[in-house]
C-alpha cells in the first residue's frame, strides 16, 4: 500500500468494485452497525466458550 494514496472531496471518482456507493447514508450506517453488533455477539460468544472450556480440564 501507499498509505497516502487518498483524496478527499469532490469530484468523486467512480467507486471501486468493493465500495458501497451509498456509504454513510443513515441507512448504510445503521446496516453497518447492525452487522457490527451481530459480529460483536459472535465474538463475545467465542470469548465465553473459551472461558468455559476451563471447566473441561481433567483434574
Amino acid at each position: 500500500m501507499k498509505p497516502g494514496n487518498f483524496q478527499i472531496g469532490e469530484p468523486m471518482p467512480p467507486a471501486p468494485p468493493s465500495a458501497n456507493a451509498a456509504a454513510f447514508s443513515p441507512a448504510d450506517l445503521s446496516a453497518r452497525r447492525a452487522a457490527s453488533r451481530r459480529l460483536g455477539w459472535w465474538l463475545g460468544a467465542a470469548v465465553l466458550a473459551i472461558y468455559l472450556l476451563g471447566l473441561l480440564i481433567p483434574r
Binding site: 500500500m1 467507486a15 468493493s18 456509504a23 459480529l39 460483536g40 465474538l43 463475545g44
Partner: peptide, 21 residues
C-alpha cells in the same frame, strides 16, 4: 477488542480494502 474488530471489518470507507488498511 470486539469494538475494534467490528469497526475495522464493517466501518471502512468505500474502496479501503484490507490490503489498503
Amino acid at each position: 477488542s470486539i469494538n475494534i474488530i467490528v469497526t475495522i471489518f464493517n466501518m471502512r470507507a468505500p474502496g479501503m480494502t484490507m490490503m489498503k488498511l
